[in-house]
Simulated assay, not measured.
Amino acid sequence: MSRPPYRHFGRSLTPLPCDPDAPHRTYAFTEGGFTVEEEPQMERPGFPYDLKGAIQHERPELVGKAVAVRDHEWTYVWRLYEQPELYDRTKDPRERTNKAGDPAHAVIERRLHDAVLRWLVETTDVIPTVPDPRLPQVSLPVPGGGGGTG
């Protein structure tokens, strides 16, 4: 199988049904949405999504970029145009009571916020796995005729 031209961050779930104790990720991440500046690029869907599409164009901050992380108990959501959200899914499975900003949950909020930041740094702006074919080959002599300094 050939290597894809980009780095892949997924992991197979295949071992988990056979071995529930198989190591896997501590966190699951999700991202989506748009920046306000990207509004002209958003689709203009037809019926039955035309009304939703119109609202997104009138108020693009409503579909603003967001990143979420979940572990076994908590969900943390960081939104570009809104306040963060933190939910205790063991006590609030429908995620209706936002605990973000509550001093009693500050350690959990910080841990999940830091996990989001680390994940974003690890997974954005990666080097392609194959050379870009559009780049020209450059073969110039080293200035001064030497082998360079290294």
Rank of each mutant, 00 (worst) to 15 (best):
S2R: 14
R3L: 12
P5H: 11
R7E: 11
H8I: 15
F9Y: 05
G10Y: 11
R11L: 05
S12P: 03
T14G: 12
L16H: 09
L16R: 09
C18V: 13
C18Y: 15
P20M: 02
D21K: 09
A22H: 10
P23F: 01
T26I: 10
Y27W: 06
T30W: 15
E31G: 03
G32T: 03
G33N: 01
F34S: 05
T35C: 09
E38W: 09
E38Q: 10
E39T: 03
Q41E: 14
Q41H: 14
M42S: 03
E43T: 08
R44V: 00
P45G: 04
G46P: 03
P48G: 05
Y49Q: 05
L51R: 05
G53I: 02
G53A: 11
I55S: 02
Q56F: 04
R59Y: 14
E61A: 09
L62W: 11
G64Y: 09
K65V: 06
K65H: 12
A66K: 04
A66R: 01
A66D: 02
V67N: 06
V67E: 05
A68Q: 07
A68T: 11
A68G: 05
D71S: 08
D71L: 05
D71I: 06
H72V: 03
E73V: 06
W74D: 02
W78K: 05
Y81A: 02
E82S: 08
Q83W: 15
D88H: 12
R89L: 00
K91E: 06
K91P: 00
K91C: 04
D92T: 07
R94Y: 15
N98E: 01
K99I: 00
G101D: 01
G101I: 05
D102Q: 08
P103W: 07
A104C: 03
E109K: 08
L117F: 09
L117H: 12
R118P: 00
W119Q: 03
L120D: 02
V121E: 10
V121M: 12
E122F: 13
E122I: 08
T123H: 06
T124Y: 06
D125L: 07
V126L: 13
V126N: 14
I127K: 09
P128R: 12
T129H: 11
T129F: 14
T129S: 08
V130I: 13
P131R: 12
L135H: 12
P136M: 13
P136V: 13
P136R: 12
S139H: 14
V142H: 10
G144L: 11
G144I: 13
G144N: 08
G145S: 07
G147W: 13
